[in-house]
Each structure stands twice: as structure tokens, then as C-alpha cells.
Amino acid sequence: MLLAIVLIVLTNVFFRYFLHIGLGWTEEAARFLLIAMTFVAAAVAVKEWGHFQLLIASKWIPERQHRFVQLFAVLVVLAMSAILVRYGIAITRVSWFQTSPTMEWSMGYLYSIVPVSGALMFVFALEHFFDVLRGGSLPRQGTAHDPHAPAASQNEQGSDQWL
């Protein structure tokens, strides 16, 4: 999506400054792609548990309570994901018959990314919830795509990951 945004914006710059032709649809398309990219990235961040974490605060909480803190963090993400789904569906319904000013697309297409990404976040968070319930731990930030990253010991996992 980022590559498409760059190409669209560069195309607009070329047409506007070299050919003196303004392409109005490019700004709207780039904006829609940026919004979609943001919600897709948020879902990926939940899958990899890569959102902001307060690791320094874990030092203040006894290690035996880290599991409860992790469960609480996942429950917060589940609640926020459910809110995205519920209100995303509502805004998609309301905006379905509105059209974008330049491209004249249904705004419902744009807003439909909200409940879709919310549903994905919910599924990923539910997977994390059951992993923690079974005695596992949340993924460590930064090691999701690194096959050479050393596996964390149980003590490291318990002290470094939550919220």
C-alpha cells in the first residue's frame, strides 16, 4: 500500500509540475490507501503484539502477577476490537450511500476497513488470550520476524512482556 501511495503521489507531482495537468483523484486515492494501511498495520501489530508496551513497569510488579497483567492487557485489546467492529459496522451502514467527492466511490468501502480490521484484531487478541490462559506468554516485541533471535527463557518472558 505504501508503494502504491508513493507511486500515486509521484504521478500527481509529475502531471502537475511537468505536464501542467492536475489529477484530482490522486490525493483522494492516496488518503484512502493511507487510512487502509493504518488499520491493516494495527491488525498486524495486534497479531505480533507489537503495540506500545510499558516494559519498565513490569519490574515493579511481582513476577507471579505478570500473567494477570497480560490477561488484562489482552482483555483491553479485545474490548477495543469489539468496539471497532460494532461502531465500524454502524458507520459503514451510515456512509454506504455517500460518495467520495472526486472518485465518487461509496464511502462505505472506505469505512468497511474499520470493522474488518477490528474483527482481525479480535481474532488475534483471542488467540493471545488463550495462549496466556494455557500458561504461555505474549510474543516478545521485535522477535516476530527474526528467526535468528534467541528464544527467551521463561524468566525473561515473564519479566519483559505485558501491556
Score class of each variant (00 low, 15 high):
residue 80 M to P: 00
residue 17 Y to Q: 10
residue 1 M to Q: 09
residue 53 Q to W: 02
residue 31 R to E: 06
residue 82 A to Q: 02
residue 38 T to Q: 12
residue 100 S to F: 06
residue 100 S to D: 03
residue 90 A to D: 14
residue 6 V to Y: 13
residue 147 P to W: 07
residue 126 L to I: 05
residue 161 Q to P: 02
residue 94 V to L: 10
residue 78 L to C: 08
residue 55 L to A: 03
residue 9 V to P: 01
residue 134 R to K: 13
residue 87 Y to R: 08
residue 33 L to S: 05
residue 74 V to C: 08
residue 80 M to A: 11
residue 14 F to Y: 15
residue 153 S to V: 09
residue 20 H to S: 13
residue 150 P to Y: 00
residue 149 A to W: 13
residue 158 G to S: 14
residue 116 V to S: 04
residue 22 G to N: 14
residue 157 Q to E: 13
residue 101 P to H: 06
residue 153 S to E: 10
residue 113 I to F: 11
residue 64 R to F: 10
residue 26 T to C: 12
residue 27 E to N: 13
residue 99 T to K: 11
residue 150 P to L: 07
residue 124 F to A: 09
residue 32 F to D: 05
residue 20 H to V: 08
residue 103 M to I: 12
residue 92 T to N: 00
residue 86 R to V: 15
residue 115 P to T: 03
residue 49 W to E: 01
residue 145 H to P: 02
residue 42 A to S: 12
residue 61 I to M: 07
residue 77 V to P: 04
residue 101 P to L: 12
residue 10 L to Q: 11
residue 112 S to F: 05
residue 47 K to T: 05
residue 88 G to M: 01
residue 57 A to Q: 06
residue 78 L to S: 03
residue 120 L to R: 03
residue 29 A to H: 06
residue 1 M to P: 05
residue 122 F to C: 00
residue 56 I to A: 14
residue 133 L to R: 04
residue 48 E to K: 07
residue 101 P to G: 06
residue 75 L to W: 10
residue 150 P to F: 06
residue 49 W to F: 15
residue 17 Y to I: 07
residue 151 A to D: 12
residue 60 W to L: 13
residue 29 A to N: 05
residue 21 I to K: 08
residue 56 I to P: 03
residue 60 W to H: 11
residue 124 F to N: 03
residue 29 A to V: 13
residue 131 D to F: 09
residue 33 L to V: 02
residue 127 E to H: 10
residue 132 V to S: 02
residue 93 R to H: 09
residue 142 G to I: 11
residue 33 L to N: 07
residue 119 A to Y: 04
residue 66 H to P: 03
residue 104 E to Q: 14
residue 64 R to Y: 11
residue 162 W to G: 02
residue 122 F to L: 07
residue 32 F to I: 13
residue 26 T to S: 13
residue 100 S to P: 05
residue 152 A to C: 08
residue 121 M to Q: 00
residue 163 L to T: 08
residue 159 S to A: 08
residue 75 L to M: 14
residue 133 L to V: 13
residue 38 T to M: 15
residue 121 M to C: 14
residue 116 V to A: 10
residue 94 V to F: 12
residue 96 W to Y: 11
residue 55 L to G: 00
residue 132 V to M: 06
residue 152 A to E: 04
residue 7 L to I: 12
residue 125 A to D: 01
residue 64 R to Q: 10
residue 47 K to Q: 11
residue 140 R to C: 01
residue 84 L to A: 02
residue 93 R to L: 03
residue 113 I to T: 09
residue 28 E to G: 09
residue 31 R to V: 02
residue 112 S to K: 01
residue 38 T to C: 14
residue 115 P to A: 02
residue 38 T to S: 15
residue 79 A to L: 15
residue 71 L to K: 01
residue 25 W to S: 01
residue 94 V to D: 06
residue 149 A to F: 13
